[in-house]
Design a protein around this nucleic acid. Sequence first.
DNA 1: CGGTATATTGTACAACCATATAGTCCACGT
DNA 2: ACGTGGACTATATGGTTGTACAATATACCG
Lengths: 194, 194
Amino acid sequence: MSTAELNADLTAKARIRQVALELFALNGADATSMRAISSRAGVTVGLITHHFGTKAGLIQAVEDDIIDGIQRAIAYKPSDANVDGVVRALDQRLMDHVDENPLVVAYLRRMMLIETNGEGTDITERFTRMALDQIEDLRSRGIASTSREAEDQVMQVMLVQLGQVLLQPFLQHIAGHLDRDPEQYRLSLRKTKN
Amino acid sequence: MSTAELNADLTAKARIRQVALELFALNGADATSMRAISSRAGVTVGLITHHFGTKAGLIQAVEDDIIDGIQRAIAYKPSDANVDGVVRALDQRLMDHVDENPLVVAYLRRMMLIETNGEGTDITERFTRMALDQIEDLRSRGIASTSREAEDQVMQVMLVQLGQVLLQPFLQHIAGHLDRDPEQYRLSLRKTKN
DNA sequence: CGGTATATTGTACAACCATATAGTCCACGT
DNA sequence: ACGTGGACTATATGGTTGTACAATATACCG
């Protein structure tokens, strides 16, 4: 069953955005034609341009959607205040969101690792700024550890957590070839002080 | 000065392969037209098809060249026998080769992290097998440590060394945004034993 | 010298692309 | 009842792509 059929209840605009994310994540935006999107979404090409103007506009809309989703996922929730390690709770909710949205991850992998200077707004920059804002917000509420610099905490999240997620297919691929259990291997970050 | 001018002494066939690697590494093979290659190499499109048949043939030739280069770089050299840590010497030569061939790295990054099931032969598989063969060759000569399993040594090389190289632009990008020194951060591998 | 393989060119073509535009249908407010 | 605007379709256009192919130049070998 196709994605379009599964989501026939969504509005055409939302269906287009969803199919676009799916194809962008799988094959990249450049390699995805508006024809492919339209046929999978069960609409005509013209409707895409009607709703999003140009292909660049569609890409922008998809990325805004991704950022919004993450923003919502890591927003401060009062329940977090109870947990002793607040940053850990933040990380956990980010990882949960990531687990639930594999297409988002595939898209981010492409944009963050390869097309670092893509056409749209730099999504790595938006992500980094979002993480930094979040950490600083938690600090201003007095509920995040200040034993380390905020920037180092962000580096930790971006490189170890996100890095592990982004490298996951690579790791699994190699582990599969060597008959190793990919779960056994975890990245960590060493900071050389000088 | 363009690549074609810099290498005007090479045969046209070699020039085509070199320009192709350059453009493939920068923009990906799909996004690179044979016309772009031909104009940069100072030849016509027809000559490319004459030498390599199809675009897929050109990609294959480029990848074979990359693998050959790495194969040569990590081939056993008697001088390695003197060094106490042989695996370390192997790693070092791989890293040197990587430093000297940034275009190869960019191409590998694309193929290993994103297009894991690309059109050509799986380059991650070729790389992994090559590393494993190399380790086992060194072991059969009795000049590589056998305190760890060979497969774990390969995982170490692939994930930590190569992983660091593949993630480098990502790391630099983030570090730049946070006014951090990217050199301070190093990945390492934890193996959970269970 | 002659001839044959190889290197190289120029062009043509069918498929596909993003985009623009004109037109149809329908819901909804007044 | 009407007309206005948004959702949607159909079609046309100009450009780019990979590939095929015939023609020409160049080098090499007997």
